[in-house]
């Protein structure tokens, strides 16, 4: 017989481990709520003596780079990339998942490989390419287009397993009932694959939301850059205002945390599908 730890002890260990693991997040949020003087007090204070919200309110209005502005830029970039990635990945994954086409595994491998390539690898040629296209400057296009290249392969690989897993009989009975290929897809296949589409969309959004390298390289106007770029700028100053920076960081993870709360159970399956299989 295997000796068993009592369940309550395992729960306790689990909670302590998780809490310790997530401590950096707690520390960021707590620091954003401390006044400047308290941040550097020694010994450190684990809970602020008084909650101080000025790091947030100060940056909501005015100043050269305010939180709302960065948040809006990141949202434009993330939703733009999400739209491109989803529109292109749904048909592609449907084609790869449900049609017998020669060279299918080669195509899949191609998508899989492109997903793994580092952004820094193609940054220079992409910059030059966009410059020739007139897209380097005060606009979001180049950043949106570049970030979609991360979302597309992930979505294709994830969604393909969803489409491939749907029963063949569904398609056949739809054809017998007189549905054309497009109607079969829109009315029957797509609704069934919606959980997969949700995962793909969430990840396309998150990849673009976390982007720094493209936004900071391609967008020439500081006030149009994403929130991550604002943090980079903040940290570059000689004397960083840490509570402000932490407030920035806290705001920028709001979408991540919200997404996490709502679609957590899909994320796990999406991650293992997209990353390993193919």
């Amino acid at each position: 017989m295997r000796r068993r730890c009592p369940s309550w002890l395992l729960s306790l260990i689990g909670i302590v481990v998780t809490a310790a693991f997530l401590f950096p997040l707690y520390w960021m949020i707590i620091t954003s709520l401390k006044p400047e003087g308290e941040i550097f007090r020694s010994p450190v204070t684990w809970v602020p003596h008084s909650f101080y919200f000025e790091s947030y309110t100060e940056q909501l209005t005015g100043s050269s780079y305010n939180i709302l502005n960065g948040f809006r830029n990141s949202a434009i970039i993330a939703f733009g990339s999400l739209a491109i990635a989803t529109l292109l990945a749904i048909p592609a994954s449907y084609g790869l998942g449900r049609f017998r086409i020669p060279g299918k595994s080669m195509l899949l491998l191609l998508f899989l490989v492109t997903q793994m390539l580092p952004s820094s690898l193609i940054l220079t040629p992409l910059f030059i390419q966009f410059k020739h296209m007139g897209l380097i400057g005060p606009n979001y296009w180049s950043t949106i287009l570049a970030n979609a290249t991360i979302g597309i392969p992930f979505s294709v690989v994830t969604l393909r397993t969803y489409f491939a897993g749907l029963p063949k009989e569904l398609e056949e009975s739809a054809t017998i009932d007189g549905c054309g290929a497009i109607r079969t897809f829109l009315r029957i296949m797509l609704p069934l694959a919606l959980p997969g589409v949700a995962v793909a969309m969430v990840f396309s959004f998150l990849f673009a939301w976390g982007d720094l390298i493209y936004g900071m390289t391609f967008i020439s106007k500081e006030s149009m850059r994403p929130i991550t770029s604002g943090i980079y700028t903040f940290l570059g100053f000689q004397s960083t205002s840490w509570n402000n920076t932490m407030a920035f960081g806290t705001v920028s993870i709001i979408p991540v945390v919200l997404i996490f709360i709502f679609v957590q159970r899909y994320i796990v399956s999406g991650l293992t599908n997209g990353a390993v299989k193919g």
Binding site: L22, M28, M246
Partner: peptide, 18 residues
């Protein structure tokens, strides 16, 4: 625990730098 994997790397870098 998955949260740390989903955070933008910029944020993680900032937290550890601090």
């Amino acid at each position: 625990v998955m949260i740390s994997w989903l955070l933008p790397a910029t944020i993680t870098a900032m937290m550890y730098k601090f």
